[in-house]
Amino acid sequence: MKLHELTPAPGSRKNRKRVGRGPGGTDKTAGRGHKGQKSRSGAGKGSFFEGGRSTLISRLPKRGFNNVGTTYEVINLAQLEGVEGETLDRAALELAGLVRRKNRPLKLLGRGEITRAVTVHVDAASEAAVKAVEAAGGRVILSSASSETAEQAE
């Protein structure tokens, strides 16, 4: 016996019913009856439809707090050690592969250590990260939108 000679057991496979393909019981209306929403293509209202009344999710009380805050692309100090150059801006960090999502603002965090003096251009930074960069002889420059709020806070 060879692979191309294999066949299913007789009676184990059945042809699918081809509805709407000529006389034979399921022609014309194809088992959908006459007219009405359920007879149309794309018919149905979805599993959550409740006959026009308010859905269950609308009737239940809402609890908790939905924080619609800014989601940052995070960069740690330890990651900056592997990046070449004195000035590290968004373009340099993207080239080094540290920025995955280009539409998110950058935030520098203080995990790890930095041993060389670099100038880092980011949108936000933690206090620990700024202190660590300045201690190594470098500086952190925040973007215009973030720096305005930082100056007002001082």
Score class of each variant (00 low, 15 high):
27 D>T: 06
7 T>D: 12
69 G>V: 03
39 S>P: 07
111 R>Y: 08
12 S>Q: 06
16 R>S: 07
34 H>G: 12
3 L>E: 14
56 L>M: 07
42 G>T: 01
98 L>M: 03
68 V>Q: 15
95 L>H: 10
6 L>F: 06
46 G>V: 00
13 R>I: 12
143 S>R: 13
126 S>H: 01
49 F>I: 02
55 T>K: 12
71 T>H: 14
17 K>S: 14
119 T>Y: 04
32 R>Y: 11
89 D>L: 01
122 V>Q: 04
91 A>W: 02
73 E>H: 04
142 L>V: 02
148 E>A: 14
105 P>A: 09
89 D>V: 00
18 R>G: 14
125 A>M: 05
5 E>L: 13
12 S>K: 07
59 R>Q: 13
107 K>E: 13
49 F>T: 12
26 T>P: 10
59 R>A: 13
90 R>G: 11
122 V>T: 09
73 E>I: 01
13 R>N: 11
9 A>C: 11
112 G>S: 08
118 V>W: 03
26 T>C: 12
124 A>E: 13
78 A>I: 02
48 F>R: 14
89 D>Q: 03
75 I>R: 09
40 R>Y: 05
36 G>M: 00
56 L>V: 14
23 P>I: 00
33 G>D: 09
108 L>C: 06
50 E>H: 01
128 A>G: 09
140 V>C: 04
104 R>P: 02
46 G>W: 00
109 L>E: 15
125 A>L: 03
81 E>C: 09
88 L>D: 09
146 S>W: 15
141 I>L: 14
36 G>Y: 00
49 F>Q: 05
57 I>Y: 10
138 G>T: 06
129 A>S: 06
118 V>H: 04
123 D>F: 04
111 R>G: 12
124 A>G: 04
78 A>T: 02
70 T>K: 08
23 P>K: 03
32 R>Q: 09
109 L>D: 11
43 A>P: 07
40 R>T: 15
41 S>V: 06
